[in-house]
Design a protein around this nucleic acid. Structure first.
Lengths: 185, 185
DNA sequence: GCTAGTGATGACAGTGACTGACATCGACAC
DNA sequence: GTGTCGATGTCAGTCACTGTCATCACTAGC
């Protein structure tokens, strides 16, 4: 699979994280990352569609998880509860990467173009949640609204989870945000 | 104010819309737009921070409107209702530009990087709504959740409004989406 | 052990988005 | 008329990203 050294992709991700942390995203070129990872710039762009994407490696897995867990949630759950089950499961994929998530969040928070990409990933989660709800037989506009609401809860819960030095259980952050959402009138 | 021909910015916006419509966003260079508008590429980038921004000219005004109307909403309104008043007012800024909004939406829908930018503008609306709710004395996490929910309603309502050849009243689209949101359990 | 096939990588040239620096123009104040 | 100022033009440069083709390491089949 790999050519000389194994795990080129992992090396590039780690190199990028360090460089972005040190100098910032804009002050780091794709060539810098590649060099630090021991590959060429061209190889970097074979692994990542663009420079930002190197920070969003797990997004695809999370989308799948959200979808599958939402579809498989107990039939008696409301659309919103099914979707919340999905986003909770997705969040727990990060459980053992709290340190990494904090660093990553700090980098993203410092750069608008990275925030943009993060929003796109959240939108993709919304999409896949909506699709899952459709598969549960939920119709529009309830499916979209429940999906948006669940991802909103994810967004708020994640921000809380990542802000604490000692990570609380992700599910607790979700429960808290979800309760506040339901209390809205 | 303007140099030779007046309204350089307006000319660039119109030129961009036409070119994006004809050939697509990726097949149009900043130089193409500038040339069609009778200016240089450098001037284009003095007016717009990047190529995408030419499609998001009114966003700043909408942010301000959301904020101001939310702050000024009757004190007895719930956080969510105050926020909904804000996003309704923002949506009505588009009332007389339905044709333009439809074209623009079609262009955005065809290009992921434009969708990304649109999400950033929606996030900015969420921010300014949250800020407005804070000024109303609403605390976290209710402020964020109400703001997110209101912008979700905006998102869904706008999609509906822009999809119809004969534009319904924007406020009606909002009311419909808001009712569905509240019905969620 | 040799060889052909395959997938990842390197090398290199090219396009286009964006930026900085400086010259220039046009309107307006005086 | 002259000076000031903001908007524009000009030009060179960096960097993100892409297409193309050669090359390398590993594997399967012999």
């Amino acid at each position: 699979m790999a050519r000389w050294e194994p795990d080129a992709q992992g090396r590039m991700i780690r190199a990028a994280l360090e460089l972005f942390d040190e100098r910032g995203f804009d002050q780091t070129t794709a060539g810098d990352i590649a060099e630090k990872a021991g590959v060429t710039e061209r190889t970097f762009f074979r692994h990542f569609a663009d420079k930002r994407e190197v920070l969003f490696d797990g997004a695809h897995t999370m989308e799948h998880t959200v979808h599958d867990v939402t579809v498989a949630a107990p039939a008696e759950l409301s659309p919103l509860d099914a979707a919340l089950a999905g986003i909770t499961a997705a969040g727990e994929l990060l459980a053992d990467r709290h340190e990494f998530s904090m660093r990553r969040s700090r980098i993203v928070a410092a750069n608008p173009s990275l925030q943009e990409r993060e929003l796109l990933k959240l939108a993709a989660m919304t999409e896949s949640t909506t699709k899952a709800l459709h598969e549960r037989g939920v119709t529009e506009p309830v499916a979209s609204l429940a999906a948006h609401s669940a991802v909103t809860v994810f967004h708020v819960a994640f921000a809380r989870w990542v802000a604490e030095e000692e990570p609380p259980a992700f599910a607790d952050c979700v429960a808290e945000a979800a309760a506040a959402l339901r209390a809205l009138q």
